[in-house]
Design a binder for these strands. Sequence first.
DNA 1: AAGCGAAGCAACCGCGAACCG
DNA 2: GCGGTTCGCGGTTGCTTCGCT
Length: 337
Amino acid sequence: MMTKPSSSDHQKNGLKKGPWTPEEDQKLIDYIHKHGHGKWRTLPKNAGLKRCGKSCRLRWTNYLRPDIKRGRFSFEEEETIIQLHSVLGNKWSTIAASLPGRTDNEIKNYWNTHIKKRLLKMGIDPVTHTPCLDIQQLSSILNSSLYNSPHVNHPPHHFGMGNNNILNPSLLSLLTAFLSSSSQNPDAPNQNYHHLNNSIQTFPLQENQSFAASLQTLPLESQQMISPDTTNFSFESSLPNVGPYEGGQINYSTSLLENHQIAQNNRSDPNFTTLGPLISYSTPSSSTSPNNLNSSASSTAFVKGATEEERDTYCSNMLMYNISNALNNMDGSNCLL
DNA sequence: AAGCGAAGCAACCGCGAACCG
DNA sequence: GCGGTTCGCGGTTGCTTCGCT
């Protein structure tokens, strides 16, 4: 990949730094195949490399090792990373141990460039893995998302829709007005509160989906599988191979907040898995008919089947829900007229 | 076509843990 | 137990590529 010398391709104490050349790679591979790795301090000298041992170790473990897996992370891998990160934090090497062929460095990079952004776009704190309830913080997430968007000059009528726009500009301006009033006169009633709250509650999210329904906390009628809003994605289109389900109609509507609580409460249950706020519960195989897909398989298919567009929509809906929650969470005394 | 900024990722650096004599 | 050395982890840097204007 790296062929021409760069500014960082310099020597210090006779030791080369910067990108590795194919010749250097080959020397390292040949030496390790012959003598094995370890003793990194003396390895470069013995292998005829003008590199420090540290650099050799890094090159081997992160790039040259034969069992390195290349290419995009699968949804399963992504899910595993999110799960493990929620428990372990930035313990990249420990997380890497659960993902064969992936290095800690690769996982760290993937987290910082992809997953963290996705969680932020949903209004979820990537450190605590909980919904952000601070309206100021949510606002800054929105602003950065919107202004970093390449489509910022061509906003859609609806947010989501797979083009990475996170929020309708009119809603963003309402939010900005609300925050501006709050900061200028924090103790006075904020007349923008109602505007914003009403807009958020009534905003058309996406046709053919009933996000509003998911905002209601309904009794949990099924423990088989829980999703934030099962109507959010069309099962017919995104899960062509799934169903019919045993027992017919699936009924597991529940609120996102409730889902989150369920996820928190069941962290120790190995049957529970989470993808951020998306939860699935695998019923024991004995309780499902062998002729039907069990809920675990269905859930995995759901995760797999979601397109980037559907995921963006899901992120946007999650964010709306979190804004709504953050508004409700505020001390209403100085907000309501 | 050129310029520019953002994104992605390989590689480096500093520090603490583990190891060894 | 102690000090020196080596190893490995996590944070950060900086180069390359990509995409937009």
